[in-house]
């Protein structure tokens, strides 16, 4: 099994702010992390390798600093890391990014055929969830989004069975390899890499691929030129803070307080009492 996992270095959104005056995202000084959703994809790929043998290659498109994210993936156990980096890629939207990554994954496939491509469900800085499907479409791969569990992979039959979260339930899907999987959060728990992995990550070279090495054929499809998306507005949604209501009673027991609380809830949401009674 050869899995390619696409990861992205993103600013830690927990620490991001929107500038109060200019309304632009202030990226300065915000620590960079591996997009948390991608780690579920990486862990799943590592598990398949441990189970069935093979290799895990991680790939990222981004500036040279993104090498840190790839090194992190190596220390978690990935076998090989490739950074697709070129000034020509700057300003890429999801369309241009998926074009570039698809080209690079094809190049990886020339070294060793690829059975599975993984991405996270979405990124925390763009939240589009478009790059995974974009790669699948361009490479003609079967697409399995929002996968919560890989039930079975049968390399000899070239088959895979997964569980996919869907509205109101879980779908069990079977398809053929190669395919692309976007992994759902909380589908597994990221491992803590071993010491040999940590040492290897510190030593190993992260390969840098420019647009030629990445096999880009049409330069009008990458970077800003290949990006039709326009961000027309960025804004901070106003917080949906509702005022808390204080319920005070004098010298009451906890039971009195609970009764007062229920009374207030019933008064505020008239239907609740009836509904609860019905269900009980």
């Amino acid at each position: 099994m050869h899995s390619v996992v696409c990861i992205k270095q993103v600013p830690d959104s927990a620490q991001i702010r929107v500038h109060p005056v200019t309304n632009t995202i202030m990226r300065q000084g915000v620590p960079a992390i591996v997009n948390p959703y991608d780690l579920f994809a990486l862990e799943e790929a590592l598990r398949l390798r441990d189970q069935l043998g093979g290799r895990v290659t991680v790939i990222s498109m981004g500036p040279t600093q993104a090498e840190v994210a790839l090194r992190k993936a190596l220390s978690l156990g990935a076998d090989d890391a490739i950074l697709v980096t070129d000034k020509a890629f700057a300003g890429a939207d999801t369309l241009a990014t998926s074009y570039a990554l698809a080209a690079a994954i094809r190049q990886i496939g020339k070294e060793l055929p690829v059975d599975l491509v993984f991405t996270g469900k979405q990124t925390i800085d763009g939240d589009t969830a478009q790059v995974g499907p974009g790669i699948a479409r361009r490479m003609g791969l079967q697409l399995l989004t929002y996968v919560s569990r890989i039930v079975e992979v049968a390399p000899e039959r070239r088959e895979i069975v997964v569980e996919r979260r869907a509205e109101g339930g879980v779908q069990v899907l079977q398809t053929r390899l190669p395919c692309l999987i976007t992994m759902l959060e909380d589908s597994n728990r990221m491992r803590f890499g071993s010491l040999p992995d940590a040492l290897r990550a510190a030593r190993q070279e992260v390969r840098h691929w420019d647009k030629t090495a990445a096999g880009i054929e049409d330069v009008t499809k990458i970077g800003l030129k290949g990006s039709p998306t326009i961000v027309s507005k960025v804004f901070t949604p106003s917080p949906r803070a509702e005022k808390a209501e204080m319920i005070a009673i004098e010298d009451g027991s906890p039971a009195d307080l609970a009764a007062a609380l229920l009374g207030r809830i019933a008064a505020r949401f008239p239907g609740v009492e009836k509904e609860l009674a019905q269900r009980a």
Partner: peptide, 9 residues
Amino acid sequence: RTDRAGGDL
């Protein structure tokens, strides 16, 4: 010894 698996040096 470190806290990682295989962690002796």
